[in-house]
């Protein structure tokens, strides 16, 4: 059985657990960097990216997470997770993990009153997906190696580069598990190569 870790420093952890278990995989909370060796793939959930970054620094996550990605283990970031995985952030903010060649603008749609839900077409999926955007970031620019998976009003909101998958919105707040399905396929493919 596949084991998927959810970075559990803060944020919507339980919601990802439900989705992972619904697709028949095992979910575990990741609270220490040593635990990364126990998992086949990692989800960085929605939450507050600044809070998660403080705790990632204090508990020594940055190096081990980069190593995890370099070992070709898949990582999936939703919302704050996407902010943390981006190579560049707009404005003067310094990037965090830099594992996917995208430039991200935080809180791109405005404040909470501008948060919204909609449906999107996603590359590789036949059915549309429900998408919940909460103080969401967008992908301002994507590098050549990056595959754009979904857009909303001309803004890129989902993308993949190699073993890293990101989206601006929160599939974990819906019943729809199609994107998690894509991530699980990525994990299976990575294991075939290894």
């Amino acid at each position: 059985m596949l084991t998927i870790g959810v970075l559990s420093l803060q944020g919507a952890v339980a919601e990802h657990f439900l989705q992972i278990e619904r697709l028949g995989a095992r979910a575990i909370e990741i609270k220490q960097p040593e635990q990364l060796t126990d998992i086949d793939g990692l989800i960085i959930p929605g939450g507050e990216s600044t809070t998660m970054r403080k705790l990632m620094d204090r508990y020594g996550f940055i190096g081990p997470l980069k190593k995890f990605a370099n070992e070709n283990k898949p990582i999936f970031g939703t919302c704050a997770g996407m902010v943390l995985l981006a190579k560049k952030l707009s404005g003067s903010e310094e990037a965090h993990l830099g594992l996917i060649d995208i430039t991200v603008t935080r809180n791109a749609f405005g404040r909470q009153r501008d948060s919204f839900e909609t449906t999107l077409n996603m590359h590789g999926l036949v059915q549309t997906i429900p998408a919940v955007f909460i103080r969401a970031p967008i992908i301002e620019e994507a590098g050549e190696e990056v595959e754009v998976l979904a857009s909303h009003e001309q803004s890129i909101v989902a993308a993949r580069q190699g073993n890293v998958l990101v989206c601006s919105f929160h599939p974990e707040l819906t019943e729809d598990t199609q994107i998690l399905g894509i991530f699980i396929e990525m994990i299976k493919d990575a294991q075939k190569i290894a």
């Binding site: 919302c79 009153r113 909609t118 707040l173």
Partner: peptide
């Protein structure tokens, strides 16, 4: 595609993103 603001999911979801925090 419709774009809905202020829905129950969006409002409750905002609080879900604060979980485990101070």
């Amino acid at each position: 595609m419709s774009k809905l603001v202020g829905t129950e999911t969006v409002k409750r979801g905002m609080a879900q993103m604060q979980k485990g925090g101070v």
